[in-house]
Design a protein around this nucleic acid. Structure first.
Lengths: 206, 206
DNA sequence: TCTCATTTGAACTCATGGGTTCAACATAAT
DNA sequence: ATTATGTTGAACCCATGAGTTCAAATGAGA
């Protein structure tokens, strides 16, 4: 519900956040604008003051959520810039952080919404992917290329290596989290990170 | 549209297939029963003769589609029962078949529908998973255990090994197929199978 | 040929929800 | 104080679609 603050603070922001929340809970078609307005603590016409359509409301909400979520992931790769002498441990740390971010509620909701509405909003994929998994893979590939150059990893295609690292790490998540509906204990995340990194290192360490 | 065959042949089957087709194309909420009836070549009241609800229609259609799709995958593991002397080649063959099945239109549609409606139909996950990825992973783990016992693979947890094999193989698909909306050339599937198996073997061969 | 179960099309009811209108109101700047 | 801009709630229009009803038509089996 939220308090019915009159006047103008940051309605637009509130609308986008409320919209994402409701869309995430209900799906695009089932979400009704009335409820989004309520969630954002705003009147329905106000929503239409800022967004022309339910569709563009959806697009904007998705874009905002994606941007917020995905910046964190790039930041999670930071430790790989200065890996110290224990590469294995650094990889595990990064892996664990990525798993934690990837299993976050909003993150899962974003993936679910992408999957469900990609046929009706194919353009959203471009908006999200550009700032999303692609950027993450590329950033990781950059780090790995450095490591390969330093003789600490097998020197082959860093893009492939990055792709496989992420696959090994995030692939098992889908089944474990029931497509993102179940949350995992931190201990389980640790184990998954350890398993993925161990296999990765066995295949790719120089 | 289909010809308006009167009398009763296999209305029920037609309805389930038509329903899955339309649900796959439109999503649950946007699909309308009228159109499903048309797709199945059947009148709307006939649909309600067989199914009480749009919801149960959805459940039944998903279950039927899942069963049909997933049996093929188990069958794809067959070559691993008699791997011959070239394990690497056999793995590549199996990997390639799995990729082909996984990128099939109906298969992608099933995944999309699962993702999108899992919050409204949590029970469908059980129906599908039981006969789905879980069974595949278990079946693969069985094969791998045999291979480990025969001294051809590193002898550790076969469940983990199977999970990682599938992750390495199928993980990169998501990005490459644009969440299942783009179809891939067979050559690209071959390359992906080769890359996944090569890394897998490097990490797990005895 | 007669009967029973099923199908069919069309029309109907009813609820939901997108999008708009409008008059009253609040806020900020001048 | 006044004006311009934005917000509010409530009511409204209208399209869509789930689910039902019914009389007419059909097919399978006896």
């Amino acid at each position: 519900m939220a308090t019915t603050t009159r006047g103008r603070i940051d309605k637009r922001q509130a609308i986008l956040e409320g919209a994402f929340t409701v869309f995430a809970r209900e799906g695009y078609a089932q979400a009704c604008v009335q409820e989004i307005a309520r969630e954002a603590g705003v009147a329905k016409p106000t929503v239409y003051n800022h967004m022309t359509d339910k569709a563009t409301l959806f697009r904007n909400a998705m874009e905002a959520a994606a941007r917020a979520i995905l910046d964190q992931r790039i930041a999670a790769l930071e430790p790989l810039a200065t890996p110290g002498d224990d590469l294995h441990a650094t990889l595990e740390e990064v892996a664990h952080t990525l798993l934690r971010l990837h299993t976050d509620g909003r993150s899962c909701a974003l993936r679910r919404l992408l999957y469900s509405e990609i046929t009706h909003f194919p353009d959203i994929l471009d908006i999200v992917k550009e700032s999303g998994p692609d950027r993450l893979t590329r950033a990781l590939a950059d780090r790995l290329a450095r490591l390969a150059l330093a003789g600490r990893l097998r020197a082959t295609d860093p893009d492939l290596t990055a792709e496989q690292f992420l696959a090994l790490l995030l692939g098992p998540l889908e089944a474990r989290t029931q497509l993102g509906t179940r949350s995992l204990e931190d201990a389980e995340l640790r184990t998954m990170a350890r398993d993925a990194v161990e296999t990765f290192v066995r295949a790719w360490a120089a």
